[in-house]
Simulated assay, not measured.
Amino acid sequence: MAAYSKGYKRFKLDRPLSITLTRASILRAAGLGPAQSRQTRNRRELQGALQRLTEPVVKGLPPLVRSIKTMRSGRLRLIIEPKWLPDGNYGQLVWPPPKSGATVLALYLFLGGCRLRSRIDPMAVERLYRRIGIHHLRPSHAERALDHALVVINEHLKLTDADLEERDFPQGVKVKRFENGNRIRFSAVLSTKQKENRRIKIELNKYRPQKEEIDQNRREEEEAERWYDEHDRKRKRRQAREREDYEENGYYDTV
Rank of each mutant, 00 (worst) to 15 (best):
A2I: 14
A2D: 11
A3V: 11
A3E: 10
S5Q: 10
G7A: 10
Y8F: 15
F11K: 11
L21N: 04
R23H: 03
I26S: 01
I26K: 01
R28K: 11
R28E: 04
A30R: 15
A35R: 14
S37N: 01
R38S: 14
Q39I: 14
E45R: 12
Q47G: 07
G48S: 08
G48F: 04
A49Y: 03
L50M: 04
Q51F: 01
R52H: 06
R52W: 01
L53W: 00
E55P: 00
V58G: 04
V58I: 09
G60S: 03
L61S: 08
L61C: 04
V65A: 00
I68S: 01
I68Q: 03
K69Q: 10
K69N: 09
S73E: 13
R75L: 06
L76R: 05
R77G: 07
L78Y: 02
I79R: 12
P82L: 11
P82Y: 12
K83E: 15
P86E: 02
P86F: 08
N89Y: 15
N89F: 15
Q92P: 05
L93E: 03
L93I: 05
V94G: 02
V94P: 00
P96Y: 07
P97C: 11
P97T: 09
P98F: 01
K99F: 05
K99G: 08
K99T: 11
A102N: 07
T103L: 08
L105F: 13
A106C: 04
Y108G: 00
L109W: 01
L109S: 10
G112E: 03
G112M: 01
C114F: 07
R119S: 08
A124E: 04
L128F: 04
L128A: 08
Y129M: 06
I132P: 05
I134T: 08
H135I: 11
L137M: 10
L137P: 00
P139A: 02
A142P: 01
A142I: 02
E143M: 07
R144V: 12
L146T: 04
D147F: 09
V151S: 12
L157T: 06
L159G: 09
T160S: 06
D161L: 14
D161Y: 14
D161G: 14
D161N: 15
A162S: 14
A162F: 07
L164K: 09
D168I: 01
G172H: 02
K174D: 09
R177S: 06
N182M: 12
A188C: 07
A188V: 10
T192D: 15
E196R: 10
R199Y: 03
I202Y: 10
I202N: 12
N205C: 13
K206R: 15
R208V: 11
Q210M: 13
K211P: 02
E212Y: 00
E213F: 06
E213Y: 10
I214P: 02
I214W: 09
D215S: 13
N217L: 15
R218P: 00
R219T: 02
R219P: 02
E222R: 06
E222D: 07
A224W: 03
A224R: 11
E225I: 07
E225L: 09
E225A: 08
E225T: 01
E225C: 02
W227R: 15
D229C: 04
D229I: 05
E230C: 02
H231Q: 15
H231N: 11
R233F: 06
K234V: 11
Q239E: 13
A240G: 11
A240Y: 10
R243K: 12
E244F: 05
E248G: 02
E248M: 09
N249L: 06
G250K: 12
Y251V: 12
Y252D: 01
T254Q: 14
